[in-house]
Amino acid sequence: MRIRAAGGRTGPPGPRRERGSFAVEAAVLVPVILGFALMAVAAGRLQTTGSVVDAAARAGARAASLARTPEGAQQAAADAVRTSLASRSVRCAAEPAGDPQYGTLDTDGGQLATVTVRVSCTVPLSDLLGLDGVPGHKTVTGTFTSVVDRYRGN
């Protein structure tokens, strides 16, 4: 038996009229959920890349602290930074390490010479997301200061 609904329509009674609503809800929600998932992946990859850049700055400062000359420190820092970034497959758009900066640290035992290495790496967002064709880039920076080794020899 058919029941006539208000307005003269006929159709099955009850919840059957909501047929197909799940497909519509899924079509609306799936892109939103995927967007949030991609944003979470990008944030995680950005955090990981920041950690790699920090580690490269540490490696560069330590290598520079062992060098005997400023020129040697610059070369040792650049090599250590490149090696550290390459080992984790981080590609920078430009040369990541600048010149090491020298300074002093006052302690109870006297002044200590320090060297600071700053690494700045501009990474394409397509590398962070793992998707080709994503426009844009993000610059990640890391800085580390190391005490110059007094006993490195002359």
Rank of each mutant, 00 (worst) to 15 (best):
36 F>V: 08
125 L>W: 00
35 G>K: 04
60 G>E: 02
36 F>W: 03
8 G>H: 14
66 L>W: 03
5 A>C: 06
111 Q>S: 12
67 A>M: 05
131 L>D: 06
87 S>W: 06
49 T>N: 08
118 R>H: 04
89 S>P: 04
130 G>K: 13
31 P>S: 08
26 A>F: 15
44 G>I: 15
99 D>H: 09
46 L>M: 14
13 P>N: 05
82 R>P: 04
103 G>D: 12
65 S>W: 04
114 T>D: 05
99 D>M: 05
59 A>P: 06
9 R>H: 15
75 Q>M: 02
133 G>E: 09
145 T>L: 04
66 L>S: 02
140 V>F: 04
31 P>D: 12
28 V>N: 08
77 A>C: 14
128 L>D: 00
58 R>L: 15
86 A>W: 02
17 R>F: 10
132 D>E: 15
79 D>S: 13
32 V>Q: 05
25 E>F: 13
89 S>W: 03
113 A>T: 13
108 D>M: 10
7 G>Q: 09
26 A>T: 09
132 D>Q: 14
83 T>C: 01
127 D>N: 11
151 Y>T: 08
129 L>E: 00
111 Q>A: 13
135 P>K: 05
33 I>F: 15
47 Q>F: 04
121 C>T: 00
83 T>E: 10
42 A>G: 08
79 D>L: 03
129 L>T: 11
